[in-house]
Each structure stands twice: as C-alpha cells, then as structure tokens.
C-alpha cells in the first residue's frame, strides 16, 4: 500500500484516499462507480477498462454489480457509490442478498449529502442507518467504516472474496476536483467487455 489514507477537517476519511486504497493493486477487480462524485473518484484512482464510471442510472449501481458478479463469478466486483445513489435503490440490497454473490462488494461513500447537486442533506445526515438496512436485507457482512485501519481491513476482505460485503464509509464532505472519465458510454461498456473477454467480446 502506497496511499496514505487521510482525514479532512471534520476528522472523517478523505474519499479519494479511500477509493485509491481499495483500487490499488486490484488484481483484475472490476469497479462500478455510482454517478457523480464516486465516478470521478474511481477515475482519479486511475482510469482503466476495469472501471465503469456511471453518468446516470441513479439507484441501480448495486444491481449492476450483481449482474456483473453473477456473469463473472471468478472476478471480484466492487460497486463504489454515494449515499444518495444507494438510498434511491436501497431495495436492491435485498435483491443482492438473496443472490448471495461471493465476489460482490458494495461500498457507499457516505458524505451525508447529495454532493453533485449542491450539497443538499440526505437521509443519512438524519440518522438513517444504511448498515442496518443492509443487514436487515440479509447481507450479513455489513459494516460501518470510519478509520484508515477499517479501510485496510475492508480492502483485505473484498480481495478475499467472502462477499457479499456492504460497507458504509463515513467520508469528509469536502468536494474534490473533477476528474472526468470518458462520457461515451458505449465505449465504457465495450472496453470493460474487452478487458474481460478479449476481442471476442465484440463478436458475441
């Protein structure tokens, strides 16, 4: 691990450090980034065909991860998304839990706000507990992450493949510089398919 996982003025984790730590030396792990800041975060960690940064589809990031994890059981899949995005599709945690994909992790970067749209408060700001909701849905390994040590433990567990894992990571709300991924979504899809299946992907 080269990245130092820092904290902001609030004493909470810095989002880019968390994401960098999760994606460093990723060993072929596939990552889906929820629309808005999480998509910029996975791009800041290094744009790659193994990344699928979303420009829309709010509420479906987790279940996209499910479809991918079911299709590619030998690969690790991590969904990195925002609290607002997760809240919009929170029922999908039940759908994921019932399928029990060993290779899927869902990491919510919880800044307690809708960052991308002007920092309006989300329900997590008012005590809504995503970890309890994920546990209630049936994801036994659902955890709150507040410290650098817990991020490193999360990273180890994601790579061990004992999923499904759900993690709500409390992060500093400071917004970070834009690091934009390609916006042509057919390219984003095709490049990940090619990274997984080789040129054959385009002949399916």
């Amino acid at each position: 691990m080269t990245v130092q996982i820092g904290v902001g003025e609030t004493g909470k984790l810095m989002r880019r450090d968390v994401v960098q730590a999760l994606l460093e030396n990723r060993d072929g792990m596939l990552a889906i980034g929820g629309l808005g800041a999480p998509a910029w975060d996975i791009t800041a960690a290094g744009d790659s065909p193994l990344n699928l940064p979303l420009w829309g589809g709010m509420g479906a990031a987790a279940v996209m991860g499910l479809g991918l994890a079911l299709a590619q059981p030998e690969r690790k899949v991590v969904v990195i998304t925002g609290d607002g995005e997760m809240l919009m599709g929170v029922g999908s945690l039940a759908t994921v839990a019932v399928q029990r994909p060993r290779n899927l992790s869902i990491v919510v970067l919880d800044n307690e706000h809708y960052g991308e749209t002007g920092m309006q408060e989300t329900h997590t700001k008012h005590g809504v507990d995503l970890v309890m909701m994920a546990k209630g849905a049936g994801i036994a390994d659902s955890r709150l992450v507040r410290t650098a040590a817990e991020v490193l433990q999360l990273r180890a567990d994601i790579h061990a493949g004992n999923g499904p894992i759900f993690a709500q990571v409390k992060i500093d709300e400071t917004s970070q510089p834009l690091v934009l991924p390609p916006r042509e979504a057919s390219i984003l899809q095709a490049r990940m398919r090619e990274a997984i299946m080789g040129p054959q992907a385009h002949l399916q």
Partner: peptide
C-alpha cells in the same frame, strides 16, 4: 427498474 441495471451488468460480464 433493477432489471435494466441487472441486464447491463450481465452484458458487461458477457451474459
């Protein structure tokens, strides 16, 4: 709504 997301994930993974 989840189904469209699922279809996208499945296709990303070649299914």
């Amino acid at each position: 709504e989840e189904g469209v997301g699922l279809a996208f994930g499945a296709w990303l993974g070649g299914e």
